[in-house]
């Protein structure tokens, strides 16, 4: 299990990386390496060139921009878990990252790598769907912004050109009396979720005023449960309300594979959406 030969590049600027992408047709981008390296070792991917982003300055880091949190693509999962801004303004991110792999893989794994790899069961894409985060991509003609809703084109295929580089993510800040819930079901701690559910609820005067629900692992891309979100607004945050949302989750399109049926994924979606909503209602923080 040794990688096939490749030519290694370690640019020090994003521009340099984009230029390398433009001139190397069969290149793979190496971010944290926690998904690419196994595929290289198993020779599932055999690129001519590997472009390592780890020596680029300026595309890692977390910045509080008031209405949003700006996260560099090369920010390590570990740093997302340790950051005070995120802990305060988007506590669902560290809560979900607890489920991502193991601490040793989070020490290398990056948010950008996860979003570009786009495993449908991965936690970070599920969260970015929840927030409809805005992604910034740099190409030969400069930068463009993409809402997450338009990011997944198909199973594990993001909307990014071969000569483009994901440089950052903007996560909008939900103010008000907001709670969050992230639950997932996997066979073992650290495994990819079979199904994961994330929820944000804002409650004012005993009524839900804003809601977002996303489900990972059920379909070829993370999905938003918009029908349930609409139904939640105006309802009281109680067990009956959440049960009704769960029944909507049971009706989602779900994929099946050699191990897991679509019916089981739908069943899990219902269970987990209900639990995620209940969790969100239980930790309303009154400010964040």
């Amino acid at each position: 299990m040794k990688p096939a030969p490749f030519t290694y590049h370690d640019p020090t600027t994003a521009d340099e990386a984009v230029a390398l992408l433009a001139t190397h047709e069969d290149a793979k981008i190496l971010a944290g390496g926690q998904s690419l390296m196994p595929m290289l070792n198993m020779r599932f991917v055999v690129p001519d060139d590997v472009i390592d982003l780890n020596r680029i300055d300026g595309i890692a880091g977390i910045r509080d921009a008031g209405e949003s949190i700006e996260i560099g693509a090369m920010t390590r999962q570990r740093d997302l878990m340790r950051d005070d801004v995120i802990a305060t303004k988007a506590p669902i991110i560290p809560a979900a990252l607890h489920w991502v792999g193991h601490f040793q893989t989070r020490n290398r794994g990056t948010i950008g790598g996860s979003l570009c790899h786009l495993d449908p069961a991965a936690e970070l894409p599920c969260l970015m769907a929840l927030y409809d985060a805005e992604l910034t991509v740099q190409g030969p003609d400069g930068a463009r912004k993409i809402p997450f809703a338009e990011w997944p084109l198909a199973y594990m295929i993001p909307s990014i050109g071969p000569d483009e580089l994901l440089t950052g993510v903007s996560v909008p800040h939900w103010g008000g009396n907001t709670g969050h819930g992230f639950v997932e079901f996997s066979r073992r701690h650290g495994d990819f979720a079979i199904v994961a559910a994330a929820a944000l609820l804002t409650v004012d005067a005993g009524k839900i005023t804003r809601a977002a629900i996303s489900i990972g692992g059920a379909d070829v891309r993370p999905i938003r449960l918009t029908e349930a979100e609409t139904a939640l607004v105006g309802a009281t945050p109680d067990a009956g309300t959440f049960k009704a949302a769960a029944e909507i989750a049971r009706g989602i399109e779900a994929m099946s594979d050699a191990y897991v049926s679509s019916a089981y994924r739908q069943r899990l979606a219902a269970t987990l959406v209900e639990r995620a909503l209940a969790a969100a209602a239980s930790n309303l923080n009154g400010s964040a």
């Binding site: 650290g190 050699a258 191990y259």
Partner: peptide
Amino acid sequence: LFERMIYDDQGQPLTMNYGEYLLPLASE
């Protein structure tokens, strides 16, 4: 509860890595 070596009906092994073949971990 966990360990299952799965083959398809053509005899292709499907569980070929430790994400698919589940060994018991300390956490469970």
